[in-house]
């Protein structure tokens, strides 16, 4: 994966594309990537994020992309609970509550790919005990994972 964004060049190398295509063989249903941008807030990062998402979406005919503007599409942003840009919502047959803030490159790129697959299947890779505990949750849980690209 190329570290720096350049208008003339794709972010994903041919090798990245081949690896992701292989991963995407596990996709079993439609996935929608809803991208929130806002030129005034973070133009370069938002452009890079949109480009990355479009390049990923090209690798599977099950993936669709919708680009929204945080300032203009306020109702949608509020409904998704998104208040930062760049942001990506990963939706499967429904919204499972998965969000990415910032451009998911490096380690987070594989996390994005994995999120796409698990939202398509709706089948989390968790132990039976964990699933039972999560089904029994009596309150909402908000998990924030702070990460870096490398």
């Amino acid at each position: 994966m190329r570290a720096r964004y350049n208008d003339a060049m794709p972010i994903l190398t041919a090798r990245d594309q081949a690896a992701v295509r292989k991963e995407f063989e596990r996709i079993t249903g439609p996935v929608k990537l809803v991208v929130f941008s806002q030129e005034l807030a973070a133009a370069e990062l938002c452009q890079q994020n949109e480009q990355l998402v479009r390049e990923v979406a090209e690798l599977s005919d099950q993936i669709t992309v919708e680009v929204l503007n945080l300032a203009i599409d306020r109702e949608r942003a509020e409904a998704y609970g998104v208040d930062q840009v760049p942001a990506i919502v990963v939706e499967g047959s429904r919204d499972y509550g998965i969000r990415f803030y910032g451009v998911p490159l490096g380690y987070e790129f594989s996390n994005l790919i994995d999120s796409i697959i698990v939202t398509s299947t709706g089948a989390p890779a968790l132990a039976e005990d964990t699933l039972a505990s999560l089904r029994a949750l009596s309150a909402d849980v908000d998990i924030k994972v702070f990460s870096t690209p490398t």
Partner: peptide, 29 residues
């Protein structure tokens, strides 16, 4: 961390946000 995303799919109660720390210094602080 993939566990967070898988937990989101497992339960409607769970929501997960991955935050690129260097791009969001205020949140990180």
């Amino acid at each position: 961390m993939r566990l967070a995303q898988h937990m989101s799919v497992a339960s409607d109660r769970v929501r997960s946000t991955v935050i690129e720390a260097t791009e969001f210094p205020e949140l990180s602080r």
